[in-house]
Design a binder for these strands. Structure first.
Length: 428
RNA sequence: GUGGGCGUAGCUCAGUUGGCAGAGCUCCGGAUUGUGAUUCCGGCGGUCGUGGGUUCAAGCCCCAUCGUCCACCCCA
């Protein structure tokens, strides 16, 4: 009988990996909390319309990458391909952004029907941050500060760089789009197939084409920033000055345009060259028009999303992981014989009330030798050994596994005290 | 959707010109009746991705198909 396997592009995260995920999530959580951000949790499934109206009808995400299906009542539903739309919908629905500012974050799985490759999967995870009601470049700055702080905490700050751009107001963008289309139409013979297609669908995307010939052609194209409105340029200048005074290095990339239609003004990407083709680990920008576009009152907004799988890959390659992550447990109890095994259960339970170390009781039977081997493999720093002779004396043998200290016999009622006091056994 | 690489034990991989299906790691037992990380010995473990074809004979050659990885597109 054929074995059932996980769906293509949807991965199991195995026990070996989960400590890394927890570390990433906890690090992010504590930083966001320190900036006063609140978590929001929204459903994974939304009305299909929500994404069509927010992301943009002609984007690849909406055109060919959504997991869309009919509910039993005929309504079209979609597994969320990103988090911003749901967040805006929930805020609007519950009045969270009516006459008030919000600093929010969320995490969870997203779904896009694409061919999987390194750092890109059909079910992937994002940690997203959205802010509402704040117009100025100071909040843009704050978002970049907190991401920079996270990279430092994770030990990957040397592996990422910040790319920055402004897309201007929607009027300025529309004006530039016409200029660009006019220029490229004159040179249409030099465009590749993809770029020709984008000329009618999403011309600005041609700016960040990977094709060198197209990039060469763009050298002679109208200057994007020259077409932008004063207000946006002023905003952008202030953001740059803020980053400089705070010591956050950045690179202005006038070719950086984001794929989702709702972005305007500030856009940014944190990129790395350590992950192959999918080098963007965090990206976002301003979307001042989206709330109104979804039927709410006009509300300025700026946010970003991090790709959890990409950050995990980068952490594995470059990060500095706490030693604790490599260990399953701190204390391993090996009991031998029926009476000792029974005593070990109550002993272990009692210890869990008294000490905070992780404590694993071996229940797998097997020889004494194999128990010691398991104790070693588990990463535990101390083994507690309980056999017939110890049981008779009312003691356990405490064997340090990572230091050269002598094994000692400890009376049952003194174990917790010894484990709390003898920190030399537990030095990282 | 397009292009290329790879599918052999739980994992990492050998497998010669087509001639008995292999190693290391893991796991279990033993050398050492109760002391792990290094030794040594033994054991468990296989639909060679799947289906067809060629052949006396296919892991190997041919066709198809599925999976996977990387890249394009696109994106976190």
């Amino acid at each position: 009988m054929a074995k059932i396997k996980a769906i293509r592009g949807m991965n199991d995260i195995l026990p070996e990996q989960t400590p890394l995920w927890q570390y990433l999530e906890e690090s992010t959580r504590s930083i966001l909390s320190s900036y006063g951000y609140s978590e929001i949790r929204t459903p994974i499934v939304e009305s299909t319309d929500l994404f069509c109206r927010s992301i943009g009808e002609v984007t690849d995400i909406v055109e060919k990458e959504m997991y869309t299906f009919d509910d039993r009542n005929g309504e079209s539903l979609t597994l969320r391909p990103e988090g911003t739309a749901s967040c805006v919908r929930a805020c609007e629905e519950h009045g969270l952004i009516f006459n008030q500012v919000q600093r929010l974050w969320y995490t969870g799985p997203m779904f896009r029907y694409e061919r999987p490759q390194k750092g890109r999967y059909r079910q992937f995870h994002q940690i997203g941050v959205e802010t509402f009601g704040m117009v100025g470049p100071d909040i843009d700055t704050e978002l970049l500060l907190l991401t920079a702080r996270l990279w430092k905490k994770l030990g990957i700050d040397h592996a990422v760089t910040l790319q920055l751009n402004t897309l201007g107001s929607s009027e300025a963008r529309a004006y530039y789009r016409d200029q660009l289309v006019a220029y490229l139409t004159d040179h249409v013979d030099q465009l590749d197939e993809d770029s020709k297609r984008r000329l009618t669908t999403n011309p600005l995307r041609i700016l960040d084409s990977k094709n060198p010939q197209v990039q060469a052609l763009l050298e002679g194209a109208p200057d994007f920033h020259a077409c932008l409105d004063d207000e946006s340029l002023k905003h952008f200048d202030q953001l740059k000055r803020n980053l400089e005074s705070l010591g956050i290095p950045y690179e202005v990339n006038p070719r950086l345009v984001r794929g989702l239609d709702y972005y305007g003004r500030t856009v940014f990407e944190w990129v790395t060259d350590k992950l192959g083709a999918q080098g963007t680990v965090c990206a976002g920008g301003r979307y001042d028009g989206l709330v109104e576009q979804l039927g709410g009152r006009a509300t300025p907004a700026v946010g970003f999303a991090m790709g959890a799988e990409r950050l995990i890959l980068l952490l594995e390659a470059e990060g500095s992981l706490p030693d604790r992550l490599k260990r399953q447990t701190d204390i391993f109890i090996a009991a031998l014989g029926d009476a000792a095994e029974q005593k070990a259960l109550s002993l272990a339970e009692n210890l869990r009330d008294l000490v905070s170390w992780r404590l694993t009781l071996d229940c797998s039977g097997g020889s004494f030798k194999s128990k010691m081997k398991k104790a070693d493999r588990s990463g535990a720093r101390v083994a507690l050994i309980l056999g017939d002779s110890e049981l008779e004396q009312g003691v356990v043998a405490l064997k340090p596994l990572r230091t050269q200290d002598e094994q000692e016999l400890v009376p049952f009622d003194k174990i917790a005290a010894v484990l709390s006091a003898e920190h030399r056994y537990f030095k990282e």
